[in-house]
C-alpha cells in the first residue's frame, strides 16, 4: 500500500507553557506590588556588582529582594548575604538561562509582602536569557566596557527587549580603547529609543542614576 504524506497546517506556540507560567509570575508580582527586573549580561559584566551598588542606595523605604541565577555555585549569593541583602539562589545546572518555572518556585519561597523591588540576576549570557520571558516588568541589558563597543549589533534581541541598558566599567574606557560613539551608534541601529545609564561600580560614578531608575520602577508599580 502506498502512503500519502498529509500536511496539517496550524499555528501553535512552541513556548506555550513557558508563556503561561511567565504570565502567572507577572500576576503574582502585580498582586504583591513588586517591581521585578530581569538583569541580563555577559559573564563578568558586573550584574552582581550593580545589585551591590543598589543595596546601599535604594533607600530604607524600598524592600529589596534578589534571585540569583547561576549555572553552579552560590558565590554571588554569599556576596549579597554579606551585605545584608535578602537573596535566593537558583542553580540552573546545564541550563544557560533562568526559566519562568524556576522563578515561579523562587517566588513561592520569597516573602513578597516585604519586597518592593525584586532584582533577578540571570545566568551570564547575552543570547539565551533574552529568549525567555520570566514574567518581569522589564529587562535590563548590562554591557561592560571591556567587552567592546559592538555588542548591541551582535546581539540585537536583548537590546530590543530591554527597557534600559547599563554600560558598566566606564572607569576602563580609556584603558580599553572603547569608543562611546561607536557603542551609541550600534545601539541606535538596533533600538533608537533605549535609554542608557553609564556606571562605574568601581568608582561609584553613575550608581545614583541607576538606583533612581530602579526607584522609579517601584513607584510605577505602587500606583
Amino acid at each position: 500500500m502506498i502512503k500519502n504524506a498529509v500536511r496539517i497546517k496550524m499555528k501553535e506556540e512552541v513556548l506555550r507553557s513557558e508563556k503561561k507560567i511567565a504570565a502567572a509570575n507577572r500576576r503574582r508580582l502585580r498582586r504583591a506590588a513588586v517591581a521585578g527586573l530581569n538583569i541580563i549580561g555577559s559573564p563578568g559584566a558586573g550584574k552582581t556588582s550593580l545589585i551591590e551598588a543598589v543595596a546601599g542606595r535604594i533607600g530604607k523605604g524600598v524592600g529589596l529582594g534578589v534571585i540569583e541565577g547561576d549555572l553552579a555555585s552560590d558565590l554571588d549569593l554569599r556576596r549579597l548575604n554579606a551585605i545584608g541583602v535578602r537573596a535566593l539562589q537558583i542553580n540552573t545546572g546545564r541550563g544557560c538561562h533562568l526559566s519562568p518555572a524556576m522563578v515561579a518556585s523562587a517566588l513561592e519561597e520569597m516573602p513578597l509582602e516585604e519586597i518592593d523591588l525584586l532584582l533577578i540576576e540571570n545566568v551570564g549570557n547575552l543570547v539565551c536569557p533574552a529568549n525567555f520571558d520570566l514574567g518581569e516588568d522589564a529587562k535590563v541589558a548590562v554591557c561592560s566596557v571591556p567587552e567592546g563597543d559592538d555588542k548591541p549589533a551582535k546581539y540585537p534581541l536583548l537590546f530590543l527587549e530591554a527597557a534600559v541598558a547599563v554600560l558598566n566599567k566606564t572607569d576602563l574606557i580609556a584603558a580599553c580603547g572603547f569608543s562611546r560613539r561607536r557603542f551609541y551608534r550600534e545601539l541606535k541601529s538596533v533600538n533608537p529609543e533605549l535609554p542608557v545609564i553609564e556606571v562605574s561600580c568601581r568608582s561609584g560614578k553613575g550608581a545614583v542614576s541607576w538606583a533612581r531608575w530602579l526607584r522609579n520602577r517601584v513607584k510605577e508599580k505602587r500606583i
Partner: peptide, 13 residues
C-alpha cells in the same frame, strides 16, 4: 522576527 510557532505537522495516511 521573534516567532516560535509550529506551522505544520506531516503525517501519512
Amino acid at each position: 522576527g521573534r516567532e516560535l510557532l509550529i506551522e505544520f505537522l506531516e503525517t501519512e495516511e
